[in-house]
Amino acid sequence: MPSEEWELIDEELRELRRREADWDYIRGLPPKLREAIEVYIETGDLWISAKIAGMTADEFNEIRIRAGILH
């Protein structure tokens, strides 16, 4: 797959995460968790976002689902 196609896919996924996110829920989260969620929305990287939140990837995934963000 050409590099431009990968970039298009990453952008589509980022846009989906931004669009589907429940921003009211996210704004109500404690700062550390909110930062982690915002990193996740931008990167889609579950592990690093979980570590910023001080959680395991699986625990953070539950927060992601509650925040309406697609993985």
Binding site: M1, E5, L8, I9, E12, L16, R64, L70, H71
Partner: peptide, 13 residues
């Protein structure tokens, strides 16, 4: 089932 989402472009590829 999984709350996972795929990019339409990647699905086509």
């Amino acid at each position: 089932d999984s709350n996972h989402s795929f990019s339409p472009s990647e699905v086509r590829a």
